[in-house]
Structure formats: structure tokens, C-alpha cells
Design a protein around this nucleic acid. Structure first.
Lengths: 225, 225
DNA sequence: TGGTTCAACTGGTCAGACCAGTACAACCAG
DNA sequence: CTGGTTGTACTGGTCTGACCAGTTGAACCA
């Protein structure tokens, strides 16, 4: 890693990500910053050129260097809490990402993932037999989270994981309706069957159908993606 | 536009894309090049920093500056992204959420959204005409962000917004390839046409295709969701 | 009070110097 | 002749200190 300017670029990048410099804020002056970093202004300016090309900062002659990097708060920005997000939006978003996750899991044909999902499914059915709705909602959520976790896409997994709370809420909603109590379990089974068969398209369809029906059960309709 | 180093970066970009300097070749020495361009070496070096961040060029101390644009190179050598996310995962995730966002925008038939997207498209084409890759990548990213922002789903918008940097990085990658420079603009136009027509399915397909091709341009293939 | 001026910032550019690697040719000892 | 050493002329990387051109705001004067 020889190259002071690269090092400086990485340092600034990290500090921007860590929130040391926030979006829209001005960086310290180049003269001051070069002293702080212990490098010359020329090297600093090369680092800034790199950051500007990467779209993290923007220079304005006579004014300063401003951070333009996006607000780095994926989770904090999403209002969590049951009432913060319209259930319709949550269902719509889930209908976008979860079928994709199901399809990815199916195509992976991963034994461990399959076993975990079957365990969740078993827990859900057991809970329903005992009419333990709290445990059922828990197992239902676990199924969806496990699916995301084993999609082999870290981004997808992390996004769904970060939405655990609103998803948990939307999962709980249908259990408040006495009729069709077993519908979620049946629909999960369809997803599971497709995964067992390694059929990505079928898993996608099954999960899509599941979400659409779950939403319908609580009187929510959304535009299918 | 007053900024010698930007001008130099654009000039070199053009010369690389026009074949004045070919892939793998060494650029003239910085001292010589600065004289040729009529600027100081410091300014030239800032321009080279920009090109290196864009992945068009690679500096090797003691040897020279080499053109890497259009070279089939391992992904590891691609300029390091802000988050250390594999580009393949980013493209796969984008291929899940962005087509859905495009479809939602198309079905909304919102005039303001359409105008904003067309402005981004115009900015992209203008930048490409000037071979200003920094501005082009910026306009490209703006198009994708605007799409998410006007999907009318706050969750979708927030998730994509929070991934601005990895997305921005994956958007920049293809611009380092000299061939198919206009492909992103053409593919965006297809998406825009579908949105104008209010055809959600067509928008979904067009965006899906765009992401698949953009990934293919940098040698990345992922399982389509 | 209102307009002008001035000084202290900001980033942008420049010139010239030096260091640390690389490459290669010339050289000299075996 | 061969093989290793040395010298030298390149390369990019860094630093210093200077100056220019905008921006800003306070001090000043009409």
C-alpha cells in the first residue's frame, strides 16, 4: 500500500462512512486537512480527486469541499414500529424481495437451508395444532428470515434482516383472523416443496402467492410487482 | 468547467476511447504529458487520480501509467468500492428491486417523476457526448435513484437510497469499458419509453435487461431472479 | 442606514526540487 | 565469452512554497 494519496483517500472515505463528516457538510480546509493527515496538500488533492471521481465529495472553488455521499443510515431511516409504515407498503416490498429470496434458495439446493426451513415449518404446524398463535407468528417469521439468510446474497439477507420488525408485524396480522388459520402453513409448504424440488420459478411463484394472499386476508391489496 | 485537471481528465478519456492510447499501453511520462497538455504536472496527476478511480488507468511506480480500459481483468483489480460488497451480489440485488421500482413508476403515470427521469437521461447523453465519464456516471446513478424515489413505496425508496454507494460503484464500472459506452443510455431510454407508455411489465423487463447487460459488460454474471 | 472596501478565508494552479523504485546498457572480473 | 556489478537515465510519488481567483463577512465610510 505504498501511496500516501491512496491511504488518505481511504482514510477520508472511512471517516465519511463512519459519520465523522456528514452528508452536505464541508470538509476542513485543504491546508488544515493536510496537516491533520500529516501529508502535503498536493497528495491530499490527489486523494480528493479520487473521492470526487467516486462521487463521495464535490469541490466548490472559493467555498470548500462538500460531502455528497448518501446518508448512510439504512436501518435508522426506516421508521420501525408497527404504525410507522403502512402495512400495504411493507407487503408490497416483501412481495418484491421475498419471492426472489425463495427462488435463490431453491436454486442453491442447500441441504442445511432446507433442513432449517423444514424445522421452522414444523414449529409453525405444531404451534397451530396447539392454537398457540404467538409461537405460530414466531415460527412464521423465522421461516421468512431463514429464507433470506440462506439466499446466499448478503445484501438481500441484510435488507430483510433489517426489516425484521415491520415484517414481523405484517406476519402477525393474519393470525388475528380466526378463519384461514392454516393458510400460512399451507402456503409455506408450497414454497418448501418448490425448494425441495430445486425449482426456482415455482418457489418464486409460491412465495408471491403467499404474500398476496396473506395481505388479502387482512384486507390489503397492493400492486403486484 | 473551469478546472484544468478536469479538462485534462476528459481529454485523456477521449484519447483513450478514441484509441489514441490503447489498452495495455503506457501513457507518455507525466513530465512529457504535462508539457503536451500545457499544464503542470500537479494538475496532470490530479487528472490521472480521477482516471484511476474510474478504472481507466493504472499507475505503477517506477514503470509508468498504463491504460487498463477494455482489459479483461479480474474483479479484484477493479477499483475498490466503498463497501467491500462483491459486485455480483450488488448486481443481483439490484436486479431484484430495481425492475420492481421501474414497474411501479410506470404504473403511477406521475408527470413529475417522468420529467425528472428525462432530465437525468438528458444529462447522461450530454455527458456522453462530451465523454465526461464522471458526469455520465453521476447522471446514470441519478436516474436509478430517481426511479426508486418515485416508486411511491417508502421502503423500496429507502433501501435503494441507503445503497447509493455500492450502486454508484456498480454504475461506474461499465464506463471503464470503451466499447458500449452508449449502451447504458440506450437501455435507460428503453426503460423511459415503457414508463412514458405507462407499461409496468415493459418497464420491469427493460430494467431487468439493462442490469443484466450492464453486469455482463464488466464480465459479471448472476442468477437472474 | 446602506453601500463599498478590505482582509481572510476557500480551492486551483504552478514551478522546482528530491526520493524511491525500474530498466538497461556498460563495464569489469572470472 | 560469460556473469555479476555498477552507473545512469528513466518512471511515478511526494513535498514545499508561492501565487491566482473566487467567496464571505466584517469594518468602514458616505
Amino acid at each position: 500500500m505504498p501511496r500516501i494519496s491512496s491511504f488518505a483517500a481511504q482514510t477520508l472515505q472511512r471517516q465519511i462512512h463512519e459519520g465523522r463528516f456528514r452528508s452536505g457538510e464541508m470538509l476542513p480546509g485543504q491546508r488544515e486537512l493536510s496537516v491533520t493527515l500529516g501529508i502535503s496538500r498536493a497528495a491530499l488533492r490527489e486523494a480528493i480527486s479520487t473521492l470526487e471521481a467516486l462521487g463521495l465529495v464535490r469541490c466548490q472553488p472559493g467555498k470548500g469541499v462538500f460531502v455528497t455521499a448518501g446518508l448512510r443510515r439504512p436501518l435508522a431511516e426506516v421508521p420501525t414500529g408497527p404504525l410507522a409504515l403502512p402495512a400495504q407498503d411493507v407487503f408490497q416490498f416483501r412481495a418484491i424481495v421475498e419471492p426472489a429470496a425463495a427462488a435463490l434458495v431453491a436454486r442453491r439446493r442447500n441441504e442445511a437451508a432446507r433442513a432449517l426451513l423444514e424445522a421452522s415449518q414444523h414449529a409453525l404446524e405444531t404451534a397451530l395444532h396447539k392454537l398457540d398463535l404467538v409461537a405460530a407468528a414466531e415460527a412464521d417469521l423465522a421461516f421468512h428470515l431463514a429464507l433470506a439468510e440462506h439466499s446466499a446474497n448478503p445484501l438481500l439477507a441484510s435488507v430483510i434482516r433489517s426489516l425484521e420488525e415491520p415484517i414481523g408485524h405484517s406476519v402477525r396480522l393474519p393470525f388475528a383472523e380466526p378463519e384461514g388459520l392454516w393458510a400460512p402453513a399451507d402456503e409455506h409448504r408450497a414454497v418448501l416443496d418448490a425448494i425441495r424440488a430445486g425449482d426456482g420459478d415455482a418457489a418464486h411463484t409460491a412465495m408471491s402467492l403467499h404474500l398476496m394472499r396473506a395481505a388479502a386476508r387482512v384486507g390489503i391489496h397492493f400492486n403486484a410487482p
